[in-house]
């Protein structure tokens, strides 16, 4: 299992390299370029700037330089944000974004699984019946609607939590954004858990476990839950992708100083170094999430573990 995990982690590196290479060329081939939008610049200043950032050199040379710098941990400097080193921007923003993502994921997984189980335990009960409409609403409403709505109810009317903004070391600021981000996840995971658990409970081995007189609780927790979580775990990959795009919106709605805004900013300003930095961060996170899903799957099912090449 450990060897399998290490090999999988090593496997991430080439994928990431391909991702970076493709992004590197694609953003440069796209129309427009840095400083093109800033009309106030004279042609001379623009040329000077291009020269300073090495953008006048052939693409292959730029690429080689980028790789060389990357190998030394240097992600370059942002063109648009006053020459800030991209690594520094990430260092400041990532903790906020990562905390938000992790909180949303944990919230989504735990309450989704709990709700799904509750729905199965009381078939036709309140939770069971509420699940489908809840899913419809949370999946249909975009987070820039859910977010302000929650902020309005909880922050403005009830005054339980701050409406927006961020002070370091105040986890309270994260509660609303995390819930906003997690709501669609909760709904999807609850429905997945419900369907999968219902199927597992019909399995022959569940009948055998009941025939051993183990009691309802033990049959559920020990025999049914783990196999039922397999589809939920497979959903972690897509969920990670959702978290990345979702956090862009949620961060801007709640004015969180995360990394999401850099991705938007970088894309609009054609700030190549910034975009590459963001591709590196979000690419790594997505790949890690997929890896985590596979490892969890292997843990859940010994057959996968034994087949693992």
């Amino acid at each position: 299992m450990l060897g399998y995990a290490l090999r999988r982690i090593a496997g991430i590196v080439p994928v990431l390299l391909i991702l970076l290479t493709v992004s590197f060329f694609v953003i440069r081939l796209a129309p427009g370029g840095p400083f093109a939008a800033a009309r106030a610049l004279s042609a001379r200043t623009r040329a000077e700037l291009r020269q300073r950032y090495g953008l006048d050199r052939p693409l292959a040379v730029q690429y080689a330089a980028y790789l060389r710098a990357l190998a030394h941990g240097d992600l370059g400097r942002s063109y648009s944000l006053r020459d800030e080193p991209v690594a520094g921007l990430i260092g400041a923003g990532l903790p906020v974004s990562a905390e938000l993502g992790a909180a949303a994921l944990a919230l989504g997984a735990l309450s989704g699984i709990a709700l799904g189980m509750a729905a199965v335990l009381r078939r036709g009960g309140v939770i069971d019946r509420a699940l489908a409409p809840l899913a419809a609403v949370t999946l249909a409403l975009p987070s820039f609607v859910i977010g302000p709505l929650l902020a309005l109810i909880v922050g403005v009317w009830l005054r339980w939590l701050p409406v927006a903004g961020w002070q370091p070391d105040t986890p309270r600021d994260l509660v609303l954004p995390a819930i906003t981000l997690a709501l669609p996840l909760i709904a999807s995971i609850a429905r997945l858990t419900r369907a999968s658990l219902l199927e597992v409970l019909n399995a022959s081995y569940i009948r055998t476990a009941r025939a051993r007189g183990l009691g309802r609780a033990r049959v559920l927790w020990r025999h049914a839950l783990r196999p039922a979580l397999v589809p939920v775990v497979s959903y972690l990959g897509p969920a990670a992708t959702y978290l990345v795009t979702g956090s862009l919106v949620v961060e801007s709605v709640f004015e969180l100083p995360g990394t999401g805004r850099y991705l938007v900013m970088g894309a609009i300003d054609r700030d190549y170094t910034l975009v590459m930095g963001m591709v590196l961060v979000y690419g790594t996170l997505t790949l890690l999430a997929n890896l985590g899903a596979d490892l969890l799957h292997a843990w859940l099912d010994p057959r996968v573990r034994h087949e693992a090449p």
Partner: peptide, 20 residues
């Protein structure tokens, strides 16, 4: 069940919990 009455069902392939 399991104490005074033992049961064995059809389908030995699926009757054991796969992850235990």
């Amino acid at each position: 069940r399991g104490r005074h009455i033992g049961l064995v069902f059809q389908d030995p392939m699926g009757a054991l919990t796969p992850h235990l």
